[in-house]
Design a protein around this nucleic acid. Structure first.
Length: 285
DNA sequence: CTTTCTGTTAGAAA
DNA sequence: ATTTCTAACAGAAA
């Protein structure tokens, strides 16, 4: 679930549910999920979450005390699930719908808040991490991120600059978080499809019009995906059990061997920038 | 059974 | 400096 629209959806939900809550307990089931010193991490007990923020695909919670920040990266399979007080106990039926998404086996960390609500960090593949950092460390991390769609810095001028002098493919640049932040493998294919540009095309061979089209498609595709709460294959489910709705709106991703929704030509799949890549051989050049 | 693939990215190798 | 490849891990699919 982990591209910008999905992480933003999670951020908004968490902001609603856990902002201003005091952390009363932390259960670290899998210590390697915590980057840095685990004992230091446990010092979060007694602190409170002030607000939930995000840059690119990285979530971070500002803490009330100590100018500290809790970074959370979901990587491939990380999920954050908020569960209301009472929903989790007993193994009952009526109130336990969220429980179905919290299979205990892959739960790595559990936060308990003062009102007895819970936040589960669940991560099958164990690539995701939680890390406590200072403001200084946070700023250093943020400074490495490229421009992000739908933010004030994401201007056509800056977009051109981000692509300037690159010798690699369009796909590699759009996936490079240091150039452009937040785009992952699903949306990069969707953006390329929307612009009629092959993901494998060299950035150096793009026309001015191509660059402008890509710039607009980044904003439009990401905006639309956020509107639909992202794409869920098996991923994000909120406290009410709602999944993302963008999957049915995907134009090319995972549509190999199916007819192009524009021209009917069969969508092809290949490997570009080391990733599975979907495109229409007729509509994309 | 084995092999390949999967939404990410840090770090090594080229 | 930039680009490409691999490893980290688990499980589904072929």
């Amino acid at each position: 679930m982990p591209e910008l629209p999905e992480v933003e959806t999670v951020r908004r939900d968490l902001e609603q549910h856990i902002a201003h809550k005091k952390i009363t307990n932390i259960d670290v089931r899998y210590p390697k999920t915590i980057h840095g010193n685990v004992s230091d991490f446990l010092s979060l007990k007694g602190n409170a979450i002030e607000r939930c923020e995000r840059i690119g695909k990285l979530l971070f919670f500002k803490l009330k005390k100590g100018e500290q920040y809790l970074l959370i990266h979901l990587k491939m399979t990380g999920k954050l699930l908020y569960v209301e007080k009472g929903s989790v106990s007993g193994g009952g039926h009526s109130l336990s719908k969220p429980l179905q998404t919290v299979d205990d086996k892959h739960t790595r960390v559990i936060f308990t808040f003062a009102d007895k609500s819970l936040l589960f960090f669940h991560d099958l593949r164990k690539f995701g991490y939680l890390k406590l950092v200072s403001l200084e460390e946070l700023e250093k991390i943020k400074s490495k991120y490229g421009i992000e769609p739908l933010t004030p810095h994401f201007t056509l001028e800056n977009f051109k600059r981000a692509l300037q002098g690159r010798k690699t493919s369009v796909k590699a640049v759009l996936l490079n978080q240091n150039c452009i932040a937040g785009i992952g493998n699903i949306y990069v294919d969707e953006i390329c499809f929307a612009t009629g540009i092959l993901p494998s095309r060299s950035v150096s061979k793009l026309s001015a019009a191509n660059i402008e089209a890509l710039f607009h498609a980044c904003n439009e595709v990401i905006k639309k995906a956020i509107l639909h709460r992202g794409t869920s294959f098996n991923s994000y489910v909120d406290g009410q059990g709602k999944k993302g709705k963008f999957e049915s709106l995907l134009q090319v991703y995972r549509r190999q061997s199916k007819p192009c929704l524009v021209c009917g030509t069969l969508i092809q799949k290949s490997r570009v920038a080391g990733r599975g890549t979907h495109f229409c051989p007729k509509g994309q050049k």
